[in-house]
């Protein structure tokens, strides 16, 4: 019968139109990006270590400059170093918590919250 020939082609067209619509719609932002698997654990460990090191360096530098300025060597540097270490641990904790929740977070490093 002719209707059996017509009906599927129109359905098919509809389907294809819908698919095209979806394809041309703004793309999904959270598509994965390259280099997830290979970067692996070493990169993550490096990242956590870097967080600690960076905050420590900030504490060290800030303390040194404050000591120079106020002539309180070495006390402010020690205090700032302590704060720097704490901040480093805090940052490292935030990063590793994110990494643990979602290993893909390495590709979407998110340091807020």
């Amino acid at each position: 019968m002719t209707e059996d020939d017509n009906l599927p082609s129109l359905k098919d067209f509809e389907k294809r139109l819908e698919a095209t619509r979806k394809r041309t719609a703004p793309p999904d932002p959270h598509e994965g990006s390259a280099g997830r698997g290979i970067s692996g654990g070493l990169a993550q460990a490096m990242r956590v270590g870097m967080e600690m090191l960076a905050a420590l360096l900030v504490g060290l530098a800030l303390g040194w400059f404050l000591d120079e300025w106020l002539g309180t060597r070495p006390w402010l540097m020690l205090v700032c170093l302590l704060f720097g270490m704490t901040a480093g641990i805090l940052n490292a904790y935030r990063v590793s918590r994110r990494l643990m929740q979602d290993p893909a977070a390495f590709d979407h490093p998110d340091e807020k919250n």
């Binding site: 209707e3 017509n6 009906l7 129109l10 067209f13 509809e14 139109l17 095209t20 619509r21």
Partner: peptide
């Protein structure tokens, strides 16, 4: 183009319905 395709599809649909 999509809009045009959609209107054509509607037309075809209507034609099919009339035919049926």
């Amino acid at each position: 183009d999509l809009e045009q395709a959609e209107s054509l599809r509607k037309e075809a649909q209507a034609a099919l319905e009339a035919y049926e």
